[in-house]
Structures are given as structure tokens and as C-alpha cells.
Design a protein around this nucleic acid. Sequence first.
DNA 1: TTCATTTGACCCCC
DNA 2: GGGGGTCAAATGAA
Length: 355
Amino acid sequence: MVLASPVIKELTEGMEKAIQLKAHMGQEVSGKIEGMMIEGILSSFENALLILKWGGSMEQSHQHVVPSTSMPGSPLSVIGSPKSEDLNPGFTTQPGSRDSSRKRKATPTWTEQGQARTENGMEGPPEDGHSWRKYGQKDILGAKYPRSYYRCTYRDVQGCCAIKQVQRNDENPLVFDITYKGKHTCTPTPRSKSAALSSEKQECNRRHNIAITEYQQQPDVTLNFQTGLTIDIQNIEHQQLGLPLTPEGLGYENHTLAPSALDADNFYSSFPPSFMPSPATPESNHFSTSPCKMSTFGGVQHGQQSESDITEIISATTSVTNSPIIDFPLEQWDFSLSFPFDNPTFFPSFYQFKE
DNA sequence: TTCATTTGACCCCC
DNA sequence: GGGGGTCAAATGAA
């Protein structure tokens, strides 16, 4: 990230002046060659800023989530859902707890699918913003590909019981079936956080090169962002009230953010004070605090707990929403304080790419 | 030195 | 007994 780059500063100023010019000229140039040229100038500025600023890759767009058969139209494949009947936080896989497998059955379990992430010609499972440690791999009878077992990196230090199993889909090797078990209860420690951050930082850098290419190839990601960012306010409010978050049972009040809603002030005001979201984890369009993504949002650093909660909220919501296909991997965008959320022309001008 | 991954072995459930 | 899940030592990477 080169936020302090003089190049960005100059480009930003140039773009602001172009905006001012456009505003000054008003409607009288609308549709005329002058207006189109201003739009083109703005578009060019934004392209350049995007490339310079957003080290976050577009590559995660590959990791769109396959629509679930049970939830037609859902952009997120959540096959099954966290089991509400048992949220036993005491579940442990610590050595010695030989009845762990029985307890494991009682942990909230849900399955998602994500497309393979490609890097350096190699394919890997999609990331989800959490820090996982692989602890095993097993060949599964009848399956072409082995199953990998991951647990939360912070299991030992914080007792976080979240685990996941990742297995390539037999029919479509580009798709990974990911089974999550247990809920993240971890909060990255400073030390661990830095370690996780550095690894994700590398991931960011690795994706950066892909980002520009794919950005050019997939110019409509911003459109998808505009139309597809859906946030379940009701569940958030339930959470605020301390009510249980049940993906299935609640009536959903999905809020799809229109471009105007992405104005920072409007955006924040749409949520309870404690909800300061940051985009996003890959396998869904939920928010996360991955350092690769939005490390600060409005100057606030967010804890892991809220992330995991919000993750559930959005994951659950997207499993039942009929919102347009969300193929916008928010994680790709490296938001910063300089992100022009408050620039109303930012998104409209992106339609230029579509045309 | 620390942390992640690999992999063979072990354990439990069906 | 077979299969799935987990452990833990060995190894590698940063």
C-alpha cells in the first residue's frame, strides 16, 4: 500500500478538480462530448488510483460461492447452517479428551463451497479471513482428492475450537467443499496477530499482480459490489439486543447498499454503533478484519470476535437472500482511510467500465 | 527461533 | 475391521 505516495495525492487532487469541473459545468454538458470527456477523465483517475492503492487482489473473485441448491439464487452456498441446537463452547479437541468426536458432532457445522484460488499457477483452497493451521490430511474413500483438516491457529493459546475440513469437489476440482465446525472464539494476540498479518500481507502482495489483470478483465466487479453487498441489519440488531442469531428462523431484512449508501457517514449510520464492519472474507461477502483487507475502517481496529459474529450474520443472510449474484470479493479491496467512499462520483463512473 | 506443513500412527465410532 | 478424525514427531520455511 502506498497511501502516502505523492502519486496518489496528485491523482486524487486531479480527480477532485475534475469532479469540481463536472459539478461546475452541471447538467449542461450532460450527454455532450464535454461531459463524456469529463467522465473519461474521472474514470482514468479512478483506474490509476485503484491500481496504485488497492493492493488487494481481484483474484478472490474466483472464489465466488456456488449457489446452493437449497437456496436458489443465493450467492453463497451454505449447505446446511450452524446448528442452533448446540453451540457448546466447551468443545475441545485437546489431547486426552477421547470423547471429542462425540462432542464434535454437537458443534455447529455448516458447509460452504468456494472456488479454487490460483497463485503462481498453483491452485489452493479459498481463504476466509481466519488464520488456520493444517493438522492433518486424509485420503477419503471414494473421493478423488484428499481431505485436509484445519484448526484455528489460536486454538492452543486461546482455546478457539473452530475447525474446518477442506476437500476438492470430485466433479469440479476448481471447487472446494469446506466444512466448518465450531465457532471462532479467538482474538488474535499481538504476537499472533503480527504473524498472521505478515502471512496475509504476503498473500496480498502475491495477489497484487493478479489484481490488475483481473481488474481489467472483470470490470463489473464494482457493479456487483454496488448491487450485491447485502447486510442483514435485523440479525445485527438481534445481536445488539443479545438475542440469538439464528440464520434460518429470522425474517430477514436485507439491506443492499446502493452507491449512495457507501458514503462513509451513511454507511456507518446504517448500523449500530458497535458494528464497524470491514470487508470481507472470501467465501462469502461478509465482513472481516483480515489485515489483507481493511485493517482500519474509520480509524477503528476491530476485534476478531465481532468479525466472527458478523461473519455468521452475513453468511447466514446470504444463504437465504435473493439478492443479485454477489461475485464481489470484498476482501480484494484494500480499503483505507483514503478510500473515496464519500466521493459520490466514484461508483457511477465505474459504469464506464461496463460500457 | 518460531511457526506451519507433512505424514505415519493411533484412536474411536459404526 | 474399516474409515474418518486427530495427534505428534519430523521437516521445512521465514
